[in-house]
Amino acid sequence: MKHLLTLRDTSAEEIQNLLELGAAFQEVINRPVKKVPTLRGKAMITLFYENSTRTRTSFEMAAKVMSAEAINIAVAQSSVAKGESLKDTVLTLQALKADCIVMRHSISGAPMFASQRLGIPVVNAGDGRHEHPTQGLLDMLTIKQAKKGLAGLNVAIVGDITHSRVARSNVWGLTKMGVNVRLVGPRTLMPADAHLMPVKVYDNLQAGLDGVDVVNVLRLQTERMDKGLLPTLREYSRLFGISQKSLKFADKDVLVLHPGPMNRGVEISADVADGAFGINSAVETQISNGVAVRMAVLYTLMGGSGSPSTEA
């Protein structure tokens, strides 16, 4: 595979390979000296048009563990703020001899746009409301390891589906691996024709969580939410908030995921976030898995030398 732009366009086989590679890289990041020469001499440039410390740092960590250079460009500091076109920006980065561009953009399709004009690989780190493939992969790895497999599981994605690239990547990735996916949220935050995707759609939390094995809780993305789609966060929290009480609708061993950052008390209660009272919260595991999965992606796209577990 040349680029990682979507999980919709990634085959089940390619996803499987990335998950296995990610699992292998988990061992590397758990070492006391986490450094392998796999991508030595390669340069990854992150080009982020939207704020994100978490995802960007995760990519930076992944690159550096594998001895690659990691250079971060935040839009406000680059020439982009003066109005340079996306086309010119990415061509410039390629000409600077970047080996891979990891891009986050507020407009869906921007990484694909870049990939069509570049000879180097592009990784989509989140484009508008479209996809966030590495998030989808790390969610899948987390579920797979906790539940010892993916096929046949029932997973509910809860929250602002309309604006969520995490939701869409989860839908395509999970359904390809045989998971039954449910989208749960208020109607004003459910996209048009959602039922035409291979999912079941619910506007009621109890019905949506009934017997599910995994709940993936989406952050209420206030910066992307148009005003007026919800009356108040209070009402959202009461109807769709994931708490110890609402998790009782799900399977007793339900696993809880959240892409972060969390709004404690809004979409997720503090208890659930902290994994109190025996609740299986996978939030911290997700973050570590994110580094491993991104190592797998960078390795696959930049063609690292040697096997993944080469000693430093």
Partner: peptide
């Protein structure tokens, strides 16, 4: 157009 294509592509409809 608002519809399944826009939903899949993540484009406001």
């Amino acid at each position: 157009n608002e519809g399944i294509q826009a939903t899949i592509m993540g484009i406001p409809g």
